[in-house]
Nucleic acid binder design. Sequence first.
DNA 1: TATGAATGAGGCTTCATTCAT
DNA 2: TATGAATGAAGCCTCATTCAT
Lengths: 199, 199, 199, 199
Amino acid sequence: MSRPDRRKQLLLCARRVFAKEGYHGASIDDVIRKAGVARGTFYNYFDNKRALFQNVLEELFEQIWTSVTPIETGSAEGVRAQIVANFVSLFTMLENDPDVPRILLAGSTGLDPVADRALGRFYQDCRTRLSKALARGQDLGIVGPGDTTALAICIMGILKEYWSQLLLGSKPPALAKFLTEIHRFFESGWLQNEAASPR
Amino acid sequence: MSRPDRRKQLLLCARRVFAKEGYHGASIDDVIRKAGVARGTFYNYFDNKRALFQNVLEELFEQIWTSVTPIETGSAEGVRAQIVANFVSLFTMLENDPDVPRILLAGSTGLDPVADRALGRFYQDCRTRLSKALARGQDLGIVGPGDTTALAICIMGILKEYWSQLLLGSKPPALAKFLTEIHRFFESGWLQNEAASPR
Amino acid sequence: MSRPDRRKQLLLCARRVFAKEGYHGASIDDVIRKAGVARGTFYNYFDNKRALFQNVLEELFEQIWTSVTPIETGSAEGVRAQIVANFVSLFTMLENDPDVPRILLAGSTGLDPVADRALGRFYQDCRTRLSKALARGQDLGIVGPGDTTALAICIMGILKEYWSQLLLGSKPPALAKFLTEIHRFFESGWLQNEAASPR
Amino acid sequence: MSRPDRRKQLLLCARRVFAKEGYHGASIDDVIRKAGVARGTFYNYFDNKRALFQNVLEELFEQIWTSVTPIETGSAEGVRAQIVANFVSLFTMLENDPDVPRILLAGSTGLDPVADRALGRFYQDCRTRLSKALARGQDLGIVGPGDTTALAICIMGILKEYWSQLLLGSKPPALAKFLTEIHRFFESGWLQNEAASPR
DNA sequence: TATGAATGAGGCTTCATTCAT
DNA sequence: TATGAATGAAGCCTCATTCAT
């Protein structure tokens, strides 16, 4: 097997193992057994377990970023369509490849220091990009007023929580329904307007 | 030291250690060193590390639940006040005792199977209670229409994400500001109404 | 077995193993097998192989230094007697406990960086002390003129080489004979005086 | 590259690596990286690491022996000149190619059994030759009376110790000064004659 | 009830060597 | 003759847990 192929194979196996067992639960043994490869072979490709996880993480980040495409500013309608397309693309990817959310959601701490920081940077990255996109949305009149960082945190939290519940097996509403719900939520909030309620 | 006191002391030390090091990073050694107790003593009080973590978790759950009080149905205004009081109480507790969110947010997976399930049950519990509260809110006309489970997930996600970012050091907006922001969000959403936008 | 006793036992076994196998050839396995102790036990007493070797070395240094006693200045005759006594004591120790020279001579390099430096310091220490002793000897009229550092190097080299040959099995002259020989050497050199030779 | 050339190149690289890292610290990887050659290639030239070291050692021995030329018996003066020439040649070589003493002094034990024996034989060889030369020196009236084996050991020890200190960085006197000192030493010893001292 | 020495399974990593291409 | 991917034995170290005192 060629070097790059073997590397890919190992990364794939590692991703599966990390998804199933978590960082600490995963052992190099698990990985090489799944790959059908000798112990030494593994270390010809990766310096150590941490480096392996780093590499897996980077692949996941990559996979996330390639699933969404930067939005081309145009008519508000066109932008809306692109947003929807991005969401669909991201969600489809996450559903087809559940290892991605499983690994990304599993550990926000306690993995190893380097991986922790990498994950931290990734989520901060997400927040920053989302925040900027929301700011542009405000310019286009698609997004209402408000602190875009706070909004970005809200959106990320909602998505992460939904997927967490999915993975934990606590049967949240089906994705389509959930999206409909949060769309309403995004549009008009969920509190009866205080001014309106006495009405 | 009396048996229950010793037990409490060990639980407290364990909580600190788990908060600082994470489940896997924490060692029994850390705990007994902090408690100034011999190895064997520890095992007189807890069967094993997993049981210890179980117990710590249960304490945390307890602490969360005692920080909020069930809402007494009355006037909409009274209910609103109680909701606010609950939020204030919860947030105060989380801020005063950061080990609580640290441990609860740290591992949604990859700890050990039993602890994982306990955490899962806890969050499902949160969702259920929140969902029921929201349903009652709908009856009272405080909460707008919509699937309360979906809403509960949104709220939990937002809170968890905010605290995660706080703990990871990625400097989210200050809590007061964030609450103002999400209050606006909760009230009127953040998308410009499509129907309204062409207007 | 009490903690200090176990520690002594492990150090003794380790010393034997290091003497027989050399630093790299020695494995923790060898040590614990000889000590009849579990792997973990070993690590309750020493941080790692390097620390173990450090400790063994320090014991050896100690053993060397306690085998010689500082010389009390008095009559030249008295000093000579003390020197002889020191040599006898040192040699007796080295002969009774051949692991001492075996380990000290085995590796002047390539062990591990820390141990290397420790050994280096030890030999430098020897050189310094010897050099000072020789200087005092010059004051007393026992030692002739000359650079005492150079002399110290010569003496150490001679002793080390003799013992090396002994340990390598290349049958040098018996110790008593060797001492007689070098005594002559020390007294009058071994070159026929050039000035004298044409005589 | 022709087979003998490749072999020479590998031996040269190996020598450098062994000198820098010591026998155990050196890895085949280091050697082939320095040589710019594939793993398999290396094993086409040498059976294994031990054989490689063997070969390096043999080269070193060769280099030592070619640096000195057998002494042609003639006048005492002529012999003295040849001896000086040999010392100069040997020292020059050792100074120009410090890898030679570095490897020869590094391990008198603990390398691998075969190499150990080879080194042992070499030093025994040195001793034998030196001893014979000294015996001839006695015949010529250049060397004083005494056991030539003991003398040989002394001389070897002194040289080895001086070079050891040099390589360990413990700043011995400069070579020229050291040689002057030991010359005095060789000529007339360093102990004040006991018979003389009461004088 | 407390102690702390002892345990050993389990995991990570290295590196000399082989072999099919 | 050269290549370099693959091997696996061998070694180091950790840490939850046990048990005799």
